[in-house]
Design a binder for these strands. Structure first.
Length: 256
DNA sequence: AATGACACCAACCGCTATTGG
DNA sequence: CCCAATAGCGGTTGGTGTCAT
C-alpha cells in the first residue's frame, strides 16, 4: 500500500510536448495562474501528468526564461555556487535569473564537469583531483570547517600536507564571490513577470492570504521563519523552502 | 552516403518535504 | 499527532542532432 500515483498513467501522454499542448498550457496558466498542478491537466484539457505540466512550464514555457548559451560570467558563477551549495540546482538557479535548475544541471553535467576535470579539478569536491584521491573528507557541517576551496584557479599551488593543514584556518570558500546573500525568491523581475501572468482575482486572493512576496525581511529571505529571531517582517509563518542543511550551510558566511 | 560514437537536453521517475484535514 | 495529498527537487534516461570515420 503506497501513495497513489500522481496521475492516471494509463491516460497520459509521455512523448515530447507538441505546440498545441504548449499553447493550451500557456493559455491556461495565463488565465488561471500557476498552482494546483494535479488538477491543471484536466482543467486545461491536456493528457499529461500534473508534474509534467509543471516541469514543462517551469523549464520551457515561463515567459521570463533566458534561452541560449551560458555566458562566461554565468559559467563562473555556477562553478562558484556549486562549490558552496553542491548539487542544489534549484538554489543555484535562484541566483541565475532566467535559468532553470534543469538547465543548469544539464549544463553542469555536459560542460562544466568536463571542463573542471580537464583542469584536474574534482567537480564534486572542487579540489585538485590529487587531493580527492587522498580521501579528504568534505563536510558541510557548520562546526566542521570545510576544506573545500575555490577551485576555478587551476594553477593553485598544491595544498600543504595534512598535519600542516590542521593548523591552518580554512580558507574562505569563495573570497571573490559576493553572493549578495539574500536567498530571495529568484528575482524581482521574475516575480513581476509571474505577477503579470496571474489574473487579478488570483493576485487579490494571494494578498488576502498573505502570500505576497514583497517586503520579505532579510531573515526571511535567508529562509528563517517569519516571526523567528531575526525576522523583521510580518508574523505569518512562512518558510521559503530552504532546507535545514542549507540554513546551516549559510551560517558563518559573511553577509554583505 | 552510410553509420557509429558522442553530445546535448527535454522529460520522466522516484524520493523527500510540506501542507492540510 | 497521524496520514494522505501535493509540490518540488535531483538523478537518470531516451530521443535527436552533430561530428568523425
Amino acid at each position: 500500500m503506497g501513495r497513489s500515483p500522481c496521475c492516471e498513467k494509463a491516460h497520459t501522454n509521455k512523448c515530447a510536448w507538441t505546440k498545441e499542448e504548449d499553447d493550451r498550457l500557456v493559455a491556461y496558466i495565463r488565465a488561471h495562474g500557476e498552482g494546483c498542478w494535479r488538477s491543471l491537466p484536466k482543467a486545461a484539457g491536456l493528457l499529461r501528468c500534473g508534474k509534467s505540466c509543471r516541469l514543462r512550464w517551469i523549464n520551457y514555457l515561463r515567459p521570463d526564461l533566458k534561452r541560449g548559451n551560458f555566458t562566461a560570467d554565468e559559467d563562473d558563477l555556477i562553478v562558484k555556487l556549486h562549490s558552496l551549495l553542491g548539487n542544489k540546482w534549484s538554489l543555484i538557479a535562484a541566483r541565475l535569473p532566467g535559468r532553470t535548475d534543469n538547465e543548469i544541471k544539464n549544463y553542469w553535467n555536459t560542460h562544466i564537469k568536463r571542463k573542471l576535470l580537464s583542469r584536474g579539478i574534482d567537480p564534486v569536491t572542487h579540489r585538485p583531483i590529487a587531493d580527492a584521491a587522498r580521501n579528504v573528507t568534505i563536510s558541510f557541517q557548520p562546526d566542521a570547517p570545510s576544506q573545500q576551496q575555490l577551485s576555478d584557479d587551476a594553477e593553485a599551488p598544491p595544498p600543504p600536507p595534512p598535519q600542516q593543514q590542521q593548523q591552518l584556518k580554512p580558507p574562505p570558500r569563495c573570497p571573490d564571490l559576493n553572493l549578495d546573500l539574500c536567498i530571495s525568491p529568484p528575482c524581482h523581475k521574475e516575480e513581476e513577470d509571474q505577477e503579470l501572468v496571474k489574473p487579478a482575482a488570483v493576485k487579490r486572493e494571494m494578498l488576502q492570504a498573505g502570500h505576497g512576496t514583497l517586503g520579505l525581511c532579510f531573515g526571511c529571505s535567508l529562509g528563517l521563519q517569519k516571526g523567528a529571531a531575526g525576522c523583521t517582517c510580518g508574523s505569518n509563518s512562512h518558510f521559503l523552502g530552504l532546507r535545514v542543511g542549507m540554513l546551516l550551510d549559510f551560517r558563518g558566511l559573511e553577509m554583505k
